[in-house]
Computed example of a mutant assay.
Amino acid sequence: MATEELHLIYRRSGGFAGIVMAAECLGADLPEDQARVATDLLGATTEAEGGERASPPPPGPGADQFSYTVRIRQGARSRTLTWSDSTVPELARPLLSTLGALAQPTRAT
């Protein structure tokens, strides 16, 4: 599957100030290893692989935690993943960092 077909929508909300950050990009805009991680997350089926939990994560301690939502689409496949600071899989952290650097403030919805 070509990296060019990969499309990501990122949203970070929460935190002390409550500023919502958002970004959209194509897989071609990402470093190759992170585009591969996004593709892997798209096909992940278990939490250990970066897939979704069966139920939403319990609220973590502290009001300053962020919540991350990443929608990954490639061709007909699409997946939306949601994590809190404490539940982000290790393999997804560099991808979230890159998407966060691309993000701009947006209105909360």
Rank of each mutant, 00 (worst) to 15 (best):
S86F: 15
T82P: 00
T39Y: 03
F16G: 06
C25W: 01
G50L: 11
D29Q: 11
A28V: 02
T45R: 15
A63G: 14
E90F: 12
S97A: 14
T3G: 08
L95W: 06
A38G: 06
A54D: 14
T46A: 07
W83S: 06
A38K: 02
L30S: 01
L6D: 04
D85H: 03
E49P: 05
A23M: 03
A63Q: 13
A2W: 09
G51A: 03
V88T: 05
A76Q: 12
P31V: 04
T39F: 05
P56D: 08
L81E: 02
A54Y: 10
G18F: 08
E32C: 03
V88W: 00
A38D: 04
T46W: 06
P31K: 04
T87V: 05
G50V: 14
E90W: 10
Q65A: 14
G60Q: 15
R11Q: 13
P89L: 08
Y68C: 05
R71F: 00
T39I: 07
Y68T: 03
S84F: 14
E47W: 12
G18Q: 08
D40R: 15
S13V: 05
E5Y: 12
S78G: 12
I9H: 12
R12G: 08
R11A: 08
D33E: 15
G43K: 09
R71T: 13
L6F: 06
A23P: 00
V20C: 09
G15V: 09
I9P: 00
D33R: 09
Q65S: 13
P94E: 08
G27Y: 00
V88A: 03
V37S: 02
Q104P: 00
R73H: 10
T87D: 02
G15E: 11
L91I: 15
A92F: 01
Y68Q: 04
E5N: 13
L99N: 02
T106R: 12
T80P: 00
A35K: 07
P105N: 09
D33M: 05
E32Q: 09
D64A: 15
E47L: 10
R73I: 13
G18K: 08
P56Y: 02
T109I: 07
D40F: 05
F66S: 15
R11V: 05
G51T: 00
G14W: 07
E32Y: 03
S78Q: 15
A76T: 11
S55D: 10
A92C: 10
L102N: 01
A103Y: 01
A23T: 02
R12M: 14
D85K: 02
L91C: 13
Q74A: 12
Q104L: 07
L8I: 10
P31H: 04
R36E: 13
P105K: 11
W83C: 05
L96Q: 00
V37D: 02
R11I: 02
A108N: 11
P31D: 07
V88H: 00
R79T: 07
S78I: 09
A44Y: 09
G51I: 00
M1F: 08
T106W: 03
Y10M: 01
I9D: 09
Q65G: 09
T3A: 14
D40E: 15
E32M: 04
E5D: 15
V88Y: 01
D40I: 06
T109N: 10
T98G: 01
G60L: 12
D85S: 07
I9C: 08
A17M: 14
L26S: 14
A38P: 06
L6P: 08
